[in-house]
Design a protein around this nucleic acid. Sequence first.
DNA 1: TAGTGGTCTAGACCACGGA
DNA 2: CCGTGGTCTAGACCACTAG
Lengths: 236, 236
Amino acid sequence: MNNIPIYQIIENDIKQSIKEGLLQHGDMIQSENELKEKYNVSRMTVRQALNNLVNEGFLYKHKGKGTFVNTLKIDKKIQGLLSFTEEMTLMNHKVTNKIISIKLIPALDEVSAKLYLNRNDMVYFIERVRYSDDIPVLFEQLYVPQSLFKVINEEIMKGSFYHYVEKVLHLKINFSIQTIEARLATQEIAQYLEISKTSPVLHISLNSFLDNGRPFEYVKSYYRADQYRFIQHAVR
Amino acid sequence: MNNIPIYQIIENDIKQSIKEGLLQHGDMIQSENELKEKYNVSRMTVRQALNNLVNEGFLYKHKGKGTFVNTLKIDKKIQGLLSFTEEMTLMNHKVTNKIISIKLIPALDEVSAKLYLNRNDMVYFIERVRYSDDIPVLFEQLYVPQSLFKVINEEIMKGSFYHYVEKVLHLKINFSIQTIEARLATQEIAQYLEISKTSPVLHISLNSFLDNGRPFEYVKSYYRADQYRFIQHAVR
DNA sequence: TAGTGGTCTAGACCACGGA
DNA sequence: CCGTGGTCTAGACCACTAG
């Protein structure tokens, strides 16, 4: 009748206890033998549950000592591709965008290569300053192919571009490749970000693709170093 | 006598076959029963080996069908956790390390928190300058718990630390969390990296964990901005 | 129906950590 | 020393997939 495996029941019970705060970081959980008695199962079944939780990062084990609760990080989820708006909203910051310019221009070498276009195909070039809780955090230069978007206006760019791509145009965003560098702010960038000219900035170049393999954006961003840092989760 | 567990032997044999091309993407590997006979062990031991390889992304299973070899993408490795040595070697650069100091010191707040230690537990503190083709690329400050490593000496730190962790100590590195920031070089860092004091540097803080969930290193690194940038592949 | 992986048992001996 | 987790056995029944 009951087709939920026992080890999953044990897993869920422990996850629940962590979520409710009954088990906290560093706490030792019941030993494998105690859990074996408690659930009236064999030790291997208990171990299957615990090993899964170790793999998912909820627990860690120490031979000869016991099994302990790991830190529960929100960071853990921030490994995917998030837009600036999504990222800030997740952390309860208010996002506003100031549009510097929206132009329709021919793609030169660098841009046409990134967007898989021919030279001189038309692209929208958008410059924005983006604020988190009214502090300027990043200046971005965005290139998108006109062939894909037809019309780009100030109203669209005042909000979340990814939201527009996914919810309005119903395109599927797949992945992006980004490079991250340290730079010194230029006069122009320093002005937009309201920092001094000798301040360091994080320069990110982002190339994003749809699920059909086509690129839909190429973005050059400059983040204020004192306001922003990247968090990355890498698996060996 | 032989203290390498059987399941690790099975794991290594399969990994080796994949590396040599004997097993390729989509190939079905021997069934659990066949492997059980082959190694003359119980089925649970075979399953432990296969499940580890599934968790590491080498294999995938289909109930009722079999166990298959996964795509081994180079992409997959570029987004994974690579040591500086591995990364440079992959690009045919020569790596050398200059040891600035190796000290045994008590862990203060920041370090003990990152390494899950108690305050004043002893940690090794190692400072190195790392060169790619004889150009200084990064200055790193590494903290590792003494309880885990017993002895750290100059000979070990002249080479790849990850190689030592995995091949000599036989520990399994699982994942790391890193933050990436832009900074200005301090006088000390500028000197080690042979750059001017007003140059920007990439500051990376890295916290790495073993497969038992325990942290084994906390590293603060400073990369020369003109020599190094990050490339990240992010999936939506 | 035969073969695969998924779940589970009831034991066993070992290595490690702490008292 | 004892309790912990690590490894391992020799079975069992089940659910899924394919011919």
